[in-house]
Computed example of a mutant assay.
Amino acid sequence: MKHGGGRSSPCFGSPIWIQPEHPKQLTAIFCNLTDLALWHIFPECDLSWTLFILEAAPALQMFILNRARHSCTKASEHSAEKANVVWEPSKDLRHLNLKLLVMAGFEEEDKVTNYIRLVIERAVVLKTIMLRARTCKCCDAIDLEAPRRYQVDEASRRRIKERLTHGSSSTVNIFIC
């Protein structure tokens, strides 16, 4: 694990870089981690690699993923290159403390739906999921990395919620903003 050396956020600490490793190697480092935000994840990339954090951080209660990475955002010297990390979570992963999952950059697509369903299945006390559409706060551009402004009507909200919880006994509350 390397420190990213970037600016600190008023809400969160300094950025860090981590290499997806076997969770047992990271548990000593992440064992007391309760809140985590991962920003500027490329929307094209699979999200299953983030599950290694759930395995390595047993005390994690709030997990925020931001899939918005727009081309108007200037890359710093510490910015990551686009890479699609492939990760298979342990079959027996059961996270006992995660209560809130927030995803900024939500779009109704199979890889995102499958990821959220996997988190619902593995995070056994998950209470709330907040989904927010992908928008660029820096410009009004609508392009490949920041597609259409996502308008969700009530019927679409019900369909999305049903799709996310289908076949699950979870009582998670899903909010779509």
Rank of each mutant, 00 (worst) to 15 (best):
T171G: 06
K82F: 03
R148S: 07
R148D: 02
R132C: 04
H70W: 08
V119G: 02
E145V: 09
I142K: 11
E154G: 02
T27K: 15
I176V: 13
M1R: 06
A56W: 04
S169N: 12
V172T: 04
L47M: 12
I142Y: 04
I176Y: 02
W49D: 06
P10W: 08
C11L: 11
L96V: 05
W39P: 02
E121Y: 15
E81S: 11
L38N: 10
R7L: 07
E108I: 08
F106W: 07
M103Q: 07
A80F: 01
K2A: 14
H95W: 09
K2W: 13
K24P: 11
E108K: 06
R148G: 05
N173V: 07
K111M: 07
Q61D: 14
G4H: 07
L36E: 04
E109C: 12
L100T: 07
G4S: 12
E121R: 13
A83L: 08
S90C: 07
S14L: 05
S169Y: 13
I116D: 11
H22W: 01
A104N: 14
G5V: 00
P43N: 14
A59C: 12
L60R: 01
P89E: 06
G167Q: 08
N84F: 06
D35Y: 15
M62G: 04
C72Q: 02
I120M: 10
T135V: 13
S156P: 00
